[in-house]
Computed example of a mutant assay.
Amino acid sequence: MAGRAYSIFDTGIGRCGIAWGDRGIIGVQLPEAREIDTRRRLFQLYPEARETRAPVDVGIAIESIAELLRGGSADLSDVTLDMTGIPAFNQRVYAFARSIPRGETRTYGEVASHLRASGAVYSVAQAIGRNPFMIIVPCHRVLEAGHYADKISPNGGAISKRRLLSIEGAHPTASKTLFDVLLPVAPPRPHS
């Protein structure tokens, strides 16, 4: 597709990437461990995009993302996203996620209930995991039922939800321990 481009920019957590097209932002990439890996991920996701200077509207989005990643409170609600090819359900999930205030979280189940799709918790989790618009669509604010904040989508690079929530000053979240991950084991039987 003609008209797609990307730019790499500095933030408080490393060098991020943003890609756009004629209809708006098509993706945001949080930093990988190395900048070359961030660039590689952008190329894999948007092979037709070419690196160039961001136009004014994308530049404003970049400044806002950088501000948020410094702990500021920039508003990204007016950033235009190109939802071409994104399923309607995912678009609804992303619209709801964009309405979650900075520093607050919701669970997958709460999002599903809000969308009047209470049986769609797994679908909400899948949509969040496929979010191409990191930070603009703050998927890090949507957590598992136990408020675990370790997972993030592939576009999250090396950054965890916990770290993003910490930057925002969100309430502490639980993290899974080895015991949460392992299946329960029956206690040993006493010797008679």
Rank of each mutant, 00 (worst) to 15 (best):
A125M: 15
S118P: 07
A54N: 09
V181D: 12
I152K: 13
S64Y: 09
V93W: 06
L30A: 04
V56P: 07
I152Q: 13
T84D: 09
F43S: 14
A120R: 08
D78Y: 14
H114W: 06
G24D: 01
Q126P: 05
D10G: 15
P55I: 11
E67W: 15
G146W: 08
G119Q: 08
S73A: 05
Q44N: 02
D180Y: 04
R163F: 10
R163H: 10
Y148I: 13
F133M: 11
L45P: 13
K176I: 06
E35A: 12
R130A: 10
A54K: 03
S77C: 06
R141Y: 04
S192K: 09
G85S: 01
T84S: 13
R53K: 15
Y108Q: 01
D82I: 09
S123Y: 08
G71C: 15
G157A: 01
E104G: 07
Q44C: 07
S77V: 05
A66W: 00
A66N: 06
T52K: 13
E104L: 14
P132F: 00
P55E: 11
P187H: 03
W20H: 00
E168S: 03
A125K: 12
Y122N: 10
I26Q: 00
I65D: 03
R41W: 12
G129A: 07
P132R: 01
A125C: 06
S99C: 12
R141W: 08
Y122T: 10
H147R: 06
A174W: 12
G24C: 02
G119H: 07
S73M: 11
S166K: 05
P55Q: 10
V79D: 11
H147N: 03
L183E: 10
A186R: 11
I100K: 01
L165G: 07
I128N: 02
A97C: 05
E51A: 06
P138Y: 01
T80W: 15
R116T: 10
P132C: 02
G21M: 08
L143T: 11
T173W: 14
A49Q: 00
L143C: 08
V185S: 11
